[in-house]
Simulated assay, not measured.
Amino acid sequence: MLFWISFLALLALVVTYAPHGGVELAGLTLFAGTGLVDAAIAAMKAIGFSPLTRSIVFGIIGGFNIASAGLTLFALMFSVLGEAPEQREARPLAEGAAAFAAAAAALIVAVSFVGGEAGALLVLQMVALGGLLLTVTSFVQTSIDTGDVADDGLDTLGGVIADHAANHAAFSAQLASLSRRGAAT
């Protein structure tokens, strides 16, 4: 999962900075080549998108990719570091990440096919989507293997009943103590 988080974050940086000639950081120019986004730029030019519209489309794709990377990061943290309830929440987070990657892929597919230029960005986005779908599948397998939901529900119900009984007993003990003090004075 760390690979897909890194992959999606770098893909977001590529679509954000490569169309504008890169970004200067500590004397280095990062993402300076537009080779990965050339076909998408050509497709948008063929459609008739203005430079501002192209920037907005690339920004949306980058936003979808970074949202997907963030959700994948939280799914990883929940599945590895979380208790049982958090581990169950990891799968919907991974599904959300796949949905954001699918939205970015759909936008790239639409632009590429309408503009008549399919390139490296389309392939990379499809690879990211495929990887996230495999990740979601792995969460489905682990949720099936972890145990029965009905047994867990009974354990939770038993815990609620035990907590309620303990709170009631503590309240009764405090009330008895107060009544004894009141009778003594």
Rank of each mutant, 00 (worst) to 15 (best):
F3L: 04
I5V: 10
S6G: 11
S6M: 05
F7L: 06
L8C: 13
L11P: 00
V14E: 01
V14L: 05
V14T: 13
V15Q: 03
V15Y: 03
P19G: 05
A26F: 14
L28A: 10
L28C: 00
F31C: 03
F31N: 04
F31M: 00
T34L: 00
L36T: 05
V37D: 00
D38T: 14
A39E: 00
A42N: 14
A43K: 01
A43H: 05
A43S: 06
A43M: 03
M44C: 02
M44K: 00
M44G: 02
K45W: 02
G48A: 12
G48N: 04
G48K: 01
F49Y: 11
S50R: 07
L52I: 03
L52R: 04
R54L: 07
R54V: 01
V57H: 13
V57P: 04
F58A: 03
G59M: 02
G62V: 02
F64V: 12
I66D: 00
A69K: 06
G70V: 02
G70C: 03
T72E: 08
T72Q: 15
L73G: 15
L76K: 06
L76E: 09
M77H: 11
S79I: 14
V80Y: 15
V80N: 05
L81Y: 07
G82D: 02
E83Y: 04
P85Y: 15
P85E: 13
P85H: 09
E89K: 15
A90M: 10
A90C: 04
A90H: 15
A94D: 06
A94W: 09
E95V: 11
G96H: 04
A98E: 13
A99M: 11
A99V: 13
A101P: 03
A101D: 11
A102E: 08
A103F: 07
A103H: 09
A104C: 07
V109C: 08
A110G: 10
V111P: 10
V111Q: 09
F113Y: 13
V114E: 02
E117W: 06
A118Q: 05
A118M: 02
L121F: 01
L122W: 03
L122P: 02
M126T: 08
A128G: 07
G130M: 08
L132C: 08
L132Y: 07
L133Q: 14
T135Y: 13
T135R: 14
T137M: 10
T137W: 11
F139L: 04
F139K: 07
V140S: 14
S143V: 02
G147T: 02
D148R: 10
V149S: 13
L154Q: 15
D155A: 05
L157M: 09
L157Q: 12
G159Q: 10
I161G: 11
A162W: 06
D163A: 15
H164K: 09
A165H: 08
A165I: 12
A165R: 12
A166H: 10
A166C: 06
A166K: 12
A170R: 06
F171L: 14
F171I: 11
A173Q: 11
A173M: 07
L175T: 13
A176D: 06
S177T: 15
S177P: 01
S177I: 01
L178A: 15
L178F: 15
S179G: 14
R181I: 10
A183G: 10
A184Y: 09
A184F: 09
A184G: 08
